[in-house]
Design a protein around this nucleic acid. Sequence first.
RNA 1: UCCUCAGUAGCUCAAUGGUAGAGCAUUCGGCUGUUAACCGAAGGGUUGUAGGUUCGAGUCCUACCUGAGGAGCCA
Length: 442
Amino acid sequence: MSLTVSTPSPRIRIADASLHVGETVSIPGWLYNLRKSGKIVFPILRDGSGMMQCVGVKAELPEETFETIKHLTQESSVVITGVIRAEERAVGGYEMDIHSIDVLQRVPEEQPYPITPKDHGIEFLMDNRHLWLRSRRQHAILRVRHEVVRAVRDFFDNDGFTLVDCPIFTPASCEGTTTLFEVDYFEDEKVYLTQSGQLYNEATAMAFGKTYCFGPTFRAEKSKTRRHLTEFWMVEPEMAYATIEDVKQLAERFVCYVVGRVLEQRREELKVLERDTAKLEACLPPFPRMSYDDAVTFLQANGSDIQWGSDFGGTDETILTQSQDRPMLVDRFPTAIKAFYMQPDPSRPEVALGVDVLAPEGYGEIIGGGERIHDLNLLMERLHEHQLPQEPFDWYIDLRRYGSVPHGGFGMGIERCVAWICGLEHVRETIAFPRMLYRTKP
RNA sequence: UCCUCAGUAGCUCAAUGGUAGAGCAUUCGGCUGUUAACCGAAGGGUUGUAGGUUCGAGUCCUACCUGAGGAGCCA
């Protein structure tokens, strides 16, 4: 069966098939599907870069080779050698006439590959997440995610930001204290998994001017919705000498760049996902801007029972964004519901200079950020009001002692952004191995 | 933590309180251009668990377990 060993041909990836028309090449991959029709077989090979329909004709192959192909099982690992040919009837436009096949591992029929070409339920698919990643749709989503991550890095790298990553073990909370994962450190010490790199970003921004961090973030929220993971990836830029207006402009440019890159580089994947790209093409500046005050008025006029002073619910975000064709910016939230470090509006201290970006089509908040307090006394006051201990924040307070300046930034959740761009029902498909309230396997 | 819904073949789902069934997957057979191929046949079940009502329970009742969706909170 191992003809390729004695007659080695150049190995190619399916994505490069168009460069090898007429050549004899080998493609290492896995059997995606197999269609049989008497004396002709059509194994569909996948190699991670694409799909290739191969053709095996009984009359043109040794009987043993033909029988081997005919009885191949789904997801068996094989190296197929043959000649590439342009073929309109094949998906992808190219086809391979099989000369020989080398089977590395044949999936046994008594334990066949569980994910068949028909429908499956979400529980079954999540239990088989390690295999589900091989399917076309999951492949497309994770390629879009990769493009988003690349675009995020390129955007900040090309805009004068320095990447300075923040610690994952942290001694204290940035956001609320009830949503921290506690970890046993040495000598009875407790540390927590980071909820945000933002406090550290403020230190690095004072050192480099403009910085960003990008890494995993953890929230022990008992949230069981399509928008929540307990472990997610967040990119957080921070700028010295910046106001809320600078933050808003940065967020707007950033979101447009990321969406533009996916449209430019990942058309095929969006097509697999049946994403209406017109909705993404509408993502151009300027984004509509609304104050929290006006948002509350708008919501009340459109059926929400929200009262001034409380945060938006999931349905509130949907009501706000459903009439928009692009993301919207909402700013100046009640100071009382925002984190202690948020800068109050000097002319209206009851509202804070925070801004959220809400994605359209009901996807909700993808960015949260704003201007931070830079006045030492005000920061001390706010720490006290939030009943936070001073000692763990000593270093943070120091930043207001040594050349304090107005500064701000934001955080964007990668999974929510990818879910929106891909048009997915749930964020769980946007990360290879999602961690959720009741799921930590596989 | 609370609310709602669902657990039946490996998977997706049917079955008025009255003999547990189909499609896909698997195996065997047929077919030289298939596109989640198609046609024929076979094997495959402690109906989530424990109780209860009933002549009789997959179906009704109670508790529990598991999962999904949502609320609150959030990116």
